[in-house]
């Protein structure tokens, strides 16, 4: 464990807590893409299957349970909680996210580090995570408002993956044999997808005005 990875995990944890806070306290999911949340639930479900078969550390297992629990409860809130479901803008959240799942699955079947059931699903979860934010970014462009908890959520989510890239660079230089091109490329693509969001997010801070 290094400081970049710990900071990345904490930023990722903060992103889901900010979202849960928003949904639970103000009973609203306005501006939040249910489709992105569903993709994240699939990402965690397919990535953490090894929670039953391999034990890395208490921290690792604990965090996996937190991410699984939070992502599924956010989907539950947005789908089935009466008050929250009412605030979900279904007409705007229309990105065909199932079109993302199949290509990621095919790609994982073609490009992986080891052809085993767990490893292919793990690789699939990496590819899916890289593109899972797309429905949320599209929704954000439609609702044209980053000045709220959803904006903070996306900012933290992008920040976590950026910190992971620093973690991979650090591990590459400090650990022999630490080479994982698939993880690195998927992580880089994911972070690049946030580039324009970060641009407008920082503009908003510098300009101090609502950014269209």
């Amino acid at each position: 464990m290094n400081i970049f990875r710990l900071a990345g995990d904490m930023t990722h944890l903060a992103s889901v807590l900010v979202l849960l806070l928003k949904i639970h306290t103000i009973k609203s999911c306005a501006g939040v893409s249910l489709r992105t949340q569903e993709l994240y639930a699939i990402v965690f479900a397919t990535r953490y299957l090894d929670i039953f078969t391999s034990f890395v550390s208490v921290y690792n297992t604990f965090m996996k349970l937190v991410f699984l629990g939070s992502s599924f409860s956010i989907v539950w809130y947005m789908r089935y909680h009466k008050a929250v479901h009412r605030t979900y803008d279904r007409e705007q959240d229309t990105f065909r996210h199932w079109f993302l799942v199949l290509p990621c699955l095919v790609l994982a079947l073609l490009i992986h580090e080891k052809f085993t059931f767990l490893e292919v699903l793990w690789t699939f979860s990496l590819y899916l995570e890289a593109v899972a934010i797309l429905p949320q970014l599209v929704l954000l462009q439609r609702t044209r408002n980053i000045d709220n908890l959803t904006g903070q959520y996306i900012f933290l989510l992008g920040g976590y993956r950026g910190l992971y890239i620093l973690n991979w660079i650090y591990r590459y230089f400090t650990e022999p044999h630490f080479v994982h091109w698939i993880t690195w490329i998927a992580g880089l693509v994911q972070t690049l997808l946030y580039a324009d969001f970060f641009y407008y997010y920082f503009l908003r801070f510098i300009g101090g005005r609502g950014v269209e």
Binding site: V56, N60, T183
Partner: peptide, 10 residues
């Protein structure tokens, strides 16, 4: 050595 690495990251 191509020992199978365990995914130790989240």
């Amino acid at each position: 050595d191509d020992e199978y690495h365990e995914h130790d990251e989240l």
